[in-house]
Design a protein around this nucleic acid. Sequence first.
DNA 1: TCATAATATTAGGTATACCTAATCAAAAAA
DNA 2: TTTTTTGATTAGGTATACCTAATATTATGA
Lengths: 216, 216
Amino acid sequence: MEADNSRTEEYLESIYKLQQEQHPVSTSRLAEHLKLSAPSVSEMVKKLTGKGLVFHSEKGVCLTDDGKSLAKKVIRRHRLSERLLTDILGYKWDEVHDEACKLEHAISPEMEDRIAESLGNPKTCPHGHPIPDKEGNLVKEKVKPLSELKAREKGIIVNVFEEDPNMLKYLASLGMLPDVCVKVEEIAPFGGPLIVCVAGSRYALGREVASKIKVK
Amino acid sequence: MEADNSRTEEYLESIYKLQQEQHPVSTSRLAEHLKLSAPSVSEMVKKLTGKGLVFHSEKGVCLTDDGKSLAKKVIRRHRLSERLLTDILGYKWDEVHDEACKLEHAISPEMEDRIAESLGNPKTCPHGHPIPDKEGNLVKEKVKPLSELKAREKGIIVNVFEEDPNMLKYLASLGMLPDVCVKVEEIAPFGGPLIVCVAGSRYALGREVASKIKVK
DNA sequence: TCATAATATTAGGTATACCTAATCAAAAAA
DNA sequence: TTTTTTGATTAGGTATACCTAATATTATGA
């Protein structure tokens, strides 16, 4: 019984991503993220538990070591795919997520190696997230949301925790890309916008958006 | 009900390929090629018929215009994938078939365009087969099997109708690749080998192998 | 504390694409 | 012509991964 692992990979990837915000991931949050019904997710989680990829703690689902390892393999393939799309095929950073979601399940370990090599072993995806290495090691930089900078503080954009194409297109139009320096000029009170300076231009940035931009 | 078309694509691709040898394709031949049981194929063919992609004539299955069109799209993606693998990722021609079989179902029309453009709109796959254009037009050169040349005749290899990696590796080791000139020095009688000359070297080539090599 | 709301799971059901065993039909050989 | 072989289909069944509706199970807040 040769398996089609793409569903499994999809679940693990989502769990991995979601647990970065909310540690044990709730099934409902997972269902929402995967755009599936709660019972479908409940059932599948049970199967993943049977395969030793996941376990149920008090408040939700956690990855086992095996699950984490597989999730990182998928993430590696996803982010390498994104880099392939931007660096070689000329995609913009807002166009790559959905394509990479399909590609990541069609890439063999062999091909993964070749892509990495052809691209010069990139360390991050186009959105600034680290690409795990072959062994699953992943270097996380110490970052904080741009929204937590104080007035007059500067930061360098490390990554953008968002995949909505419209938001990404918007940020690109402001020149807000990884490695770019941003200065918070002032912070409007009562949850108002941040006035930021990027490459000499000033923009008013909503808190919501600013919280997705991670700086160091 | 969003569909996963990859099974459909696999069937159409196989039918397209097989009908080049045997016009209406028998279900048993198709089952063999897809490595599935005959009843599975029978059933699936019925579904494809319902979708208007295929019809049943006297002696087997034929593609409708829609089916042919879809098949050629898949073949275009397959062959572009192969070229991506060889030209950009450094694969050998004997390593690309299986990888491309997975990739072809994960490539969007958008990505198909980008690959074609990035590669300079290649006309053929690494094995010499023509890549259909966006509209499904496909230029077939007039070729004959190397095995039909007479002693002392020369030909230029156009393509190799074979995907077995071992055979491809063997041919590459003899320098027998598309666009290479081959001369048949002599033909051993009683179904014996052809003695061919490639780039100054002489080799004895079995009839079976020679029949897979198409020359002009 | 008790009701309400949010979360998770059971129960029961669908669609897809596969399978084996058995049957039916047509072609080839005796 | 009859038998045998080959080829295709029907019948019945499996696994996977999804669904809705109903039912628990927790939290939260009045």
